[in-house]
Amino acid sequence: MARLTEENVRLAQEIISRYPKARSATIPLLHLAQEQDGYVTDDAMAHIAELVGASPAEVYGTASFYEMFKFHPVGRYVINICGTMSCALMGAEDLMHHAEEKLGVRMGGTTDDGLITLERAECQAACTEAPCLQTNYRYSFRVTPESFDALVDDLRAGRLADEIPPHGVVARVRQHIPADRGAGVHAPEDVKSAPAWLDGKAAL
């Protein structure tokens, strides 16, 4: 396990081809690896390093900066409860205590059945709908202890399997640039002149 599958290598190459420099694809490829395995494995990082022309340490250096990447297995569902000001003003702390009791784990912990990892998160950009949480980056708004319990029960019963993909999958839609429609990607050093539509006149 853990190097990118053949299908994912194809996707990775398509993503890389959209950038003037392959290194720019590092974060999208790390997401691809996490989508494949649920977390980012050492083998996947080594593979990504080969694909983008970096060292595994450089890829790990990048990956470890970002909160969303996990380097150990986590639950199928990661529940992030926001604790920043707007949510805190509307009772996020009580919600976190309730969540810990309901799931029987502390913040950062995973339930024994491996289904749910609970995390304390920072502002999730839904401040008027406080307190809010995300389950694998899908929102629940104005969460109460009752609605939290209902969410957990639904997750356990598999009732949200269609709406919420397993951890690692963020966007379920991928961009595709059709070969006959793309404007073309050029390394910056290969471009010497102003784009054609400026018609020889310099932009302001």
Partner: peptide, 20 residues
């Protein structure tokens, strides 16, 4: 993309996303 609306204007928009 290429020759937008039949003009000489061509540009790609690449969706990129962060990781927190």
């Amino acid at each position: 993309g290429r020759n937008i609306l039949g003009s000489s204007f061509s540009v790609d928009i690449v969706l990129h996303w962060g990781a927190g």
